[in-house]
């Protein structure tokens, strides 16, 4: 018997976890759909009072980023939260699946399913409202209407490629928080993230200040922007892998 990974056992584990976690997940997803739809409705409706449409749709970027962050972080923060309670943790830790499979199930639900689910509800809500607006203003200013695009066709997908690792970074950090803390997982993780990012920003700013003081920038096309973006991507991706590895170790060492 393979004590590290077995596909049949992993499938059973996903099914089992869905029974408990699925409810939390679906309720959160329902609330998220409601909030996103409400945001669109409150900003855009009634359509007869709508001003310049493209301007009115600018709320989508902050909504996508802020609410997306909240959604995936809440989901990730609740996944291993039950391990902080003795009564729930004992049965879960003793389920005959390896720690790796339990960790992988956590990664699947929090980093893959939650991100995909949020993208899906956002895309559908956005598409529904944009289609409605377009059909409502069909006879109006065609030039203005042509500028009204769905969220993902308006924003060129390739432009933001280096930041696509960010959802995984967020979920990995909050997943670690859910396995590490026994109570108040979300608040404690958020505080740690704030402290760590504050300290990190302070250090980076000071180092950059020391390194670049008295120097002048030389114009080299895009000033190495692309290289820096991909360097940043590599650093964040590496940090995400480190955080995921710590989560795995923490799960392995979890005591009740």
């Amino acid at each position: 018997m393979n004590n590290t990974f077995d596909l049949h056992r992993f499938t059973l584990l996903l099914k089992r976890q869905w029974l408990e976690f699925g409810k939390i997940f679906l309720i959160t997803l329902l609330v998220a759909t409601g909030v996103v739809a409400a945001f669109y409705a409150l900003t855009l409706l009634p359509l007869q009072e709508l001003g310049y449409i493209s301007d009115q749709l600018r709320f989508r970027e902050p909504l996508f980023i802020i609410f997306g962050f909240l959604f995936i972080s809440i989901i990730a923060s609740s996944y291993f939260a039950h391990l902080g309670q003795k009564s729930k943790a004992i049965i879960d830790l003793l389920i005959p699946a390896s720690t790796f499979e339990k960790f992988l199930a956590g990664f699947f639900f929090t980093s893959i399913l939650s991100v995909l689910a949020f993208l899906l509800i956002f895309t559908i809500t956005d598409w529904a409202f944009i289609t409605y607006i377009k059909s409502y203003f069909r006879t109006g200013d065609l030039k203005e209407l042509a500028e009204v695009k769905t969220f993902f066709s308006k924003n060129e997908i390739g432009t933001f490629a280096p930041v696509y690792v960010m959802p995984f970074t967020v979920t990995s950090v909050f997943l670690l928080g859910s396995a590490y803390f026994n109570r108040f997982h979300y608040i404690k993780t958020a505080i740690c993230v704030m402290l760590f990012s504050g300290a990190w920003t302070y250090i980076v700013m000071n180092v950059v200040d020391v390194l670049l003081s008295g120097k002048t920038s030389i114009n080299l096309g895009n000033n190495g922007k692309d290289t820096m973006e991909w360097l940043l991507f590599s650093i964040i991706a590496l940090c995400t892998l480190v955080v995921l590895s710590i989560t795995y170790v923490r799960l392995k060492e979890k005591e009740v």
């Binding site: 018997m1 004590n3 056992r9 029974l19 003795k86 049965i91 005959p96 699946a97 390896s98």
Partner: peptide, 30 residues
């Protein structure tokens, strides 16, 4: 915590939590 051993351990804790499902669903899942 190898599955090969966990399959052979039945632990009935003093405090435990069971999910809000019916017995047959619990059996099906576990």
């Amino acid at each position: 915590r190898q599955p090969a051993l966990l399959q052979q351990i039945c632990f009935i804790p003093e405090e435990f939590h069971l999910p809000a499902i019916k017995i047959d669903s619990y059996v099906k899942a576990n």
